[in-house]
Design a protein around this nucleic acid. Structure first.
Lengths: 193, 193, 193, 193
DNA sequence: GATGAATGAGCTTTCATTCAT
DNA sequence: AATGAATGAAAGCTCATTCAT
């Protein structure tokens, strides 16, 4: 009647929550939905997770980890700026096309942060990654590899097209070479000269 | 004691709703909030508007109109592709920086569409504008003015940076020449050659 | 189908709540109990009252008013200290014996205040009355009518027996002349000489 | 790794429970609070105690024991009624001023008894003590030492002021000679003639 | 003795919407 | 045109208690 493996229940709950979030979105998923999908009781869910936001955090972390892995090459020790930026963008696009549910979910969480205080604490996961990128970009700019742009503009020029493309890709058919095209466009937009 | 002008009440309600949506977001605003902010009764609100989504639609339309006006030059009859694209992007950025509340609201509505069927019907307003842009771009591509890119990629390269920049601009300080930089980058990203 | 008198529903809800509180106590009464007892919907209850504490407040006020009326003589303009104190105590005892539910309820609310912040705001009703009594007693003491005791002691000597008696009277049979006995004891305990 | 002394764990749990009850009250303390405060597991708590009421009972007994010790003189074999009554009241007041948490807790338990059947069984501890006092008082009355009052009135006159004073003392500053004043007033209120 | 996962009924409260007046 | 009382399903969450290990 009990779990035969450590965190068997916990895993079931988490996976059920993720499935619900990806299918119906965060706001439209109730604890009752997760209960039904996981087979666990309400109490069990709250035994393992402090609430809906905590479950969302688990998925955010998983999604960020997935994207990071896809862009792993970008963070190799002695990579050139060109390869780092292209790998970063191509990794995001490739991963995003393969995981449209996660993309939509990340979008939703980011949006809901503004009005839901409980979700605001999830911001850290994004900001940490962004700060790393910012420091890297500023160093490259100082070395003359990329245009000396303020970070908001640099970020927008490199990753804005990828984000927008992934959003459109939910509705419109995606070209096969999108990742490559966007990666090259990102580099072209910020490289020096 | 009653409204002396037709739609006096209606206007009050609409403006109160917009103020609430812009301040707390769509999801976090209740009809009771709008009632309190407008001074109208619940019944009055439902007399003029069919529900929360209808109120949101009014704001979406207003926001789209604001942006369109700011990008009016882009749609002049015999404008060159370069000027049309630059004006479109610069208009969006300029308007967005001046109206951060609207930008956040549009973002939220777009996100909530996915999970709220009642909001999904608002999609039309966006799609209409996008279809126009798509047709225009395809013609320019056929004439050799711009790169022959699939529309999702073209849209992403031109407007993606602007959207991403406006999102970042809520938190980070925005450079003064952002509109110009993004407009030129948009043209550079899609022009032929 | 609707109320034929103003606040018909409101009154029904209030009386049902009072009945529940008196019968089962405040903590043991749920909103669902009040819903069932009043025939109103959950939404109706919250339309008229902000929550359980607000309903409790209504009963507290009613109880305090009842006791005040019973002790009205105590607050006549040119009453002697002896008659004021005796009337106050006898009024409390007489009213309390006639309304054991209210006595128990007041006791409970006073106790729960310590741990329930939402209830703490109800304290005002008690404090106001106590402050009035305090000022009166200090004046009498200055005039040599009563012993110059610190207020906590004076209050305890005059009213403590009445409170304790009413508490015991829930379980044990009450003597017929209790009000008179306690009133005379109160005066004897604090009169000068 | 385990308890080296019998009831090491038991003691820890009990003390943690008492601390929680005294700090936040009985109703506002959850088993989880006690678990956190004691370091014991939920299962351990239920191994030693049958539930929340049983933990409360332990504190009630401890409090009654404390007060009894403080009033020990009152129960000496051949004490006079005057000394017995004065010692009883003075002991209660002295102990109560030194242990305000216990006073509040006793108040709360007594109040909650009315609506919580599980707590009602704790009543015994009080009743036993009261029955002893009652028998004693009736004998003294028969011997002409004290007024021949029904027990509820006698109890109220002797101990009512002390209870009320201790309740007030939570909020208002307590006079230094309160115990003595109340003890003498108790005797004055019930002595014959 | 000790653990902590599991339970599930129960709680208060919110909310968009309807409709008699 | 305007009101606001009424609805009731649904939400997130708490908690004392049980029991297999």
């Amino acid at each position: 009647m009990h779990a035969t493996q450590p965190s068997d229940r916990r895993t079931k709950i988490l996976e059920a929550a993720l499935a619900c979030f990806l299918e119906h979105g965060y706001a439209a998923t109730s604890i009752a939905d997760i209960r039904a999908a996981s087979g666990a009781s309400t109490g069990s869910i709250y035994h393992f997770f402090s609430g809906k936001p905590a479950l969302a955090l688990a998925l955010v972390e998983r999604a960020v980890a997935g994207w990071s892995a896809a862009a792993a090459e970008a963070f190799a020790p002695d990579v050139t700026p060109e390869r780092a930026i292209k790998a970063s963008v191509a990794g995001l696009v490739t991963w995003g096309l393969a995981h449209p549910g996660e993309v939509r979910f990340i979008d939703e969480i980011r949006t809901l942060q503004s009005s839901d205080p409980a979700l605001a604490r999830l911001l850290g996961a994004f900001d940490d990654g962004r700060d790393t990128g910012r420091a890297l970009y500023d160093r490259w700019a100082a070395q003359g590899h990329v245009r000396p742009l303020p970070w908001p503009l640099a970020h927008a020029l490199m990753l804005g097209p990828a984000y927008d493309f992934l959003r459109l890709a939910r509705l419109l058919p995606a070209p096969a070479d999108a990742a490559e095209t966007l990666a090259e466009a990102a580099w072209a937009a910020v490289r020096a000269n």
